[in-house]
Nucleic acid binder design. Structure first.
Ligand SMILES: [Mn+2]
Ligand SMILES: [Mn+2]
Ligand SMILES: [Zn+2]
Ligand SMILES: [Zn+2]
Lengths: 123, 123
DNA sequence: GTCACTATTGCCACCACTTGCGATAACCTT
DNA sequence: AAGGTTATCGCAAGTGGTGGCAATAGTGAC
């Protein structure tokens, strides 16, 4: 556990919910400018491997990181207005069971947001 | 309809299935080296707006493009071995209906692959 | 405590785009 | 066919993230 890794973990504790790596790097570099952004990225991966953090993908190319101990949940994101909504994993579980039994595939349905059109934007 | 846009559309017709923008740019620039990659990216977006093409996301940072008239389908991708599998949209429809009725959300379940562990990699 | 070994780091170049800008091409109107 | 308007283009710089590499820090064995 290096000081760099400690700083990344601390930043994740402070942020309650899906932060970006860039935001974490910005915070750390405010006090420790010698720490390289690539070190932050690598430590997020390492901490994920160790089971401390996980990530999800919304509809852009930016990965969202959070502590592993927050309750897992799915995301709906509107491709029109960009709004994000959280949904209980329970809603997604029937599909998970189906993919498991029909294809032998253990889906991680919280990993990527479901993209679509939200109620407000519906035509 | 500029010659650049025509070339992008032609490249998509030749490739039967989820190509990358980089691959299309490579093909076009082999014959027309003055055409900039950014023109390819912008034309893919324009053609999507016009309804000719769509895109999907697998588990990397690369966007996959295809003609809009190919049969829509879902993707399963294994985060362990990277294997990709196509599944009929029919399998995903029950979830789509549920999100529609419970949240008023019109999900596009073919837009992002479902990430998980495939049968071969299961522990 | 010293030494060896391994993990991690900062730096840099790259990747897959994205965006701003001034130049050019497409398309209307007359 | 010419002129004006708008869309699109090539170029170059920027963004979020990845990967190689040599230097350094952490760790554990003696
Ligand atoms: Mn998308
Ligand atoms: Mn991921
Ligand atoms: Zn919306
Ligand atoms: Zn697999």
């Amino acid at each position: 556990m290096t000081v760099q890794r400690r700083l990344v973990l601390d930043a994740l504790q402070r942020a309650r919910h899906h932060t970006t790596a860039e935001e974490i790097a910005r915070q750390i570099r405010a006090r420790h400018p010698q720490i390289d952004p690539s070190t932050v990225y690598r430590n997020l991966e390492a901490l994920e491997e160790l089971g401390y953090v996980t990530h999800t993908h919304l509809d852009d190319r930016v990965t969202r990181w959070h502590r592993a101990d927050v309750e897992r949940h799915g995301h709906l994101v509107c491709r029109r207005c960009g709004s994000e909504q959280e949904i209980p994993l329970r809603t997604l579980e029937p599909l998970g069971r189906r993919l498991r039994s029909e294809q032998g595939f253990r889906a991680d349905l919280a990993h990527s947001a479901i993209v679509g059109i939200c109620r407000e934007c519906a035509p």
